[in-house]
């Protein structure tokens, strides 16, 4: 090529193999946005699933359940209890789909990162970019779901808007850990083990009933589940009970996300830069 384009990163600082650059991470998000212009349907699906659960369990079983202990307004009753939990789950699933299922395809089948690494992009940039993208996806799914349940009259407090940043935090924690776990997977068949961990967590983390149905030792164990912390955070906020105890969940999720990110970076470097 005879013509030259100016610009680029000629004056790049040294140590670039490991350096993290938010600007470079954003370019990965740019790629994903370019692709998702072609497939907007995914978001619809991610809102549809929690809505189904809300209709069948929330409404269907709500009639069988009657009053829920701890929910003041019995008009909305059981559905208002279940909806925030489903919202936290939507944020978790939206984010984790990206860093587990889709990421394994990009890592092992499409080998998208191989070509990225021939550019100034670093492994850190890829890890952070993927997590940012996943957070975006999880937050969008949760926000869409919030809009739908607001229309259904299940949002009771203006505090509910705080649920959006909560969803982002939930997305961050699960996306980062999901990414770390995915780097250990040998193939698609290993996904059933992720499923084996996620499904019980979804069922047991007080999604459908309060913590006090468990005997005391089980309560302590359930309280350690990351989804329990996520549900607790969104449910308390959605029901208008904002207070310092929620900081526990916030700190828990931040630490979980950071730990996931560090492990993910190390593992990605091993897998990609052999």
């Amino acid at each position: 090529m005879s013509t030259k384009t100016s610009g680029g990163e000629r004056g790049h600082p040294p140590g670039g193999r490991t350096r993290l650059s938010v600007r470079r991470s954003a370019r990965l998000v740019e790629r994903h946005l370019m692709i998702h212009r072609h497939t907007p349907g995914v978001l619809v699906a991610e809102i549809f699933e929690p809505l189904l659960y809300l209709l069948s369990i929330g409404v269907g079983i709500g009639r069988l359940v009657g009053d829920v202990p701890g929910v003041a307004d019995s008009a909305a009753g059981y559905s208002a209890f279940v909806a925030p939990a489903l919202l936290a789950t939507a944020a978790m699933n939206g984010a984790m789909n990206e860093t587990t299922f889709n990421l394994l395809r990009k890592l092992r089948v499409d080998r998208v990162y191989d070509s990225m690494l021939t550019t100034p992009m670093t492994v850190w940039d890829i890890a952070l970019g993927e997590v940012c993208w996943a957070v975006l996806r999880g937050t969008l799914a949760a926000t869409g779901f919030l809009a739908v349940i607001a229309v259904l009259g299940l949002v009771q407090s203006p505090w509910a808007l705080l649920v959006v940043p909560c969803a982002a935090l939930v997305g961050f924690a699960f996306a980062a850990v999901g990414l770390a776990v995915t780097t250990f997977l040998r193939g698609w068949q290993d996904f059933q083990y992720i499923q084996l961990a996620m499904l019980p967590m979804f069922l047991f983390a007080t999604t459908f009933y309060p913590l006090d149905v468990y005997p005391r030792p089980a309560q302590a164990a359930v309280a350690c589940l990351p989804l329990y912390q996520s549900i607790q955070l969104t449910r308390e906020i959605a029901l208008g009970r904002v207070g310092p105890p929620l900081l526990v969940a916030v700190v828990y999720l931040v630490l979980m996300g950071l730990a996931g990110l560090v492990v993910a970076r190390g593992r990605l470097a091993r897998v990609l830069l052999s």
């Binding site: 790049h12 670039g16 499409d110 070509s115």
Partner: peptide, 26 residues
């Protein structure tokens, strides 16, 4: 030195890998 300045070097070289690593989704 690639160990220290990998990103700098990569910004000035072009790579055509053995198996096309084209982005199938684009």
């Amino acid at each position: 030195d690639p160990a220290a300045d990998g990103a700098l070097i990569r910004s000035r070289i072009g790579v055509v890998p053995q198996d096309d690593t084209l982005d199938a989704e684009l």
